[in-house]
């Protein structure tokens, strides 16, 4: 198990290294020049050259990359070009917000998705199964901005139960922010919920049809015991993987939802950095997202190995 973990970690580090190179190169190739972006269109050539020298933009790319990476690892992520603030605290605050939204959404859709999937599998072909199946397909097909707008129209504008905007002030705690997290949370959940429910349903249905479940019944086991000790252990494996991989997306991939609800999360910050050509901010966020996605994939691998004896011991 230790060796397995070590190998996986090494693979994650390699992924990060390669991505950092890619991110650095791509942001360098982007049209525009950092010095001109800072000084503006009418800067004199002399001023531009001075700033380039000051920023180290004259040095060979490889050296620039090296110092960027070293600083990045040390937590020195530079200054934002558009606001002039240090990048690190800015990104850290947004990461915290994103994590809060992710947690709320996660707690909503994971248990519900599994339960819906399980019941659909147990009642395959019956009305319940068909309703869940059709609605989940519909929600997978609908983009977030549609479901989000519908939710706002109903719960914020129509019933006036929840606020339409989720623009929470910085440093607001989870409990006080909760009312503003519910609508974006539901929006995010609807897509993933459907996905998890379908995943759970198909794998559980498959396991219910296996010979070993028949063996368990013919050993005289109680149906609940069959479900909990014989079925779930095998049928939740693929679901667990999907859930763990989804964590990365939950934290870093909610650009549309965050924009729709004006929620100050990582996704919106990324959009901001792209629109302003704010290279230090853009590089910092992108690499952070790669880290988050890699870690959630790592988590998925570890969970799968822990739950599946065939991987663990071979």
């Amino acid at each position: 198990m230790i060796r397995f973990l070590g190998r996986r970690l090494a693979l994650v580090l390699l992924t990060l290294l390669i991505s950092s190179v890619l991110i650095f190169i791509v942001t360098q190739i982007l049209p525009g020049d950092a010095a001109r972006a800072i000084l503006g269109r009418f800067a004199t050539p002399q001023a531009l050259a001075n700033l380039r020298a000051k920023l180290g933009l004259n040095r060979p790319l490889i050296l620039q990359y090296g110092s960027w990476l070293v600083h990045y690892v040390q937590g020195d992520w530079g200054l934002s070009l558009s606001t002039g603030e240090p990048v690190f605290p800015l990104v850290a605050a947004r990461l915290r917000n994103s994590a809060m939204l992710a947690l709320v959404a996660f707690l909503m859709y994971v248990p519900l998705g599994i339960i819906l999937g399980l019941f659909s599998a147990l009642r395959r072909g019956k009305i319940f199964d068909q309703v869940v199946s059709v609605t989940s397909l519909a929600f997978i097909g609908l983009p977030e901005f549609v479901t989000g707008l519908i939710l706002i129209a109903i719960f914020a504008l129509g019933l006036n139960w929840l606020p339409a905007s989720s623009d929470i002030p910085p440093d607001q705690g989870l409990v006080r922010a909760l009312p503003r997290l519910i609508l974006p949370g539901i929006t995010v959940s609807l897509v993933s919920l459907a996905y998890i429910a379908r995943m759970t349903r198909s794998s559980t249905a498959e396991v219910l049809g296996t010979d070993y479940v028949r063996s368990a019944y013919l050993k005289g086991m109680h149906p609940l015991r069959v479900l909990f000790s014989h079925v779930l252990r095998n049928s939740l494996l693929p679901t667990v993987t999907v859930i763990a991989v989804g964590i990365g997306w939950l934290i870093g991939g909610l650009i549309v939802t965050e924009s729709l609800f004006s929620y100050p999360g990582l996704g919106r910050l990324l959009l901001f950095a792209i629109q302003r050509r704010d290279l230090p901010l853009l590089q910092a966020i992108t690499l952070l997202l790669v880290v988050i996605f890699s870690l959630s994939n790592l988590l998925a691998d570890i969970l799968y190995a822990l739950l599946n004896p065939r991987i663990r011991y071979s």
């Binding site: 010979d211 070993y212 028949r214 063996s215 005289g220 086991m221 095998n234 739950l307 599946n308």
Partner: peptide, 19 residues
């Protein structure tokens, strides 16, 4: 089942729970 009637199946590798 399992107490007064015992069963042995065709394919032992699928008749036992893999995990």
């Amino acid at each position: 089942w399992g107490s007064r009637i015992g069963m042995v199946y065709q394919n032992p590798s699928t008749a036992l729970n893999p995990s």
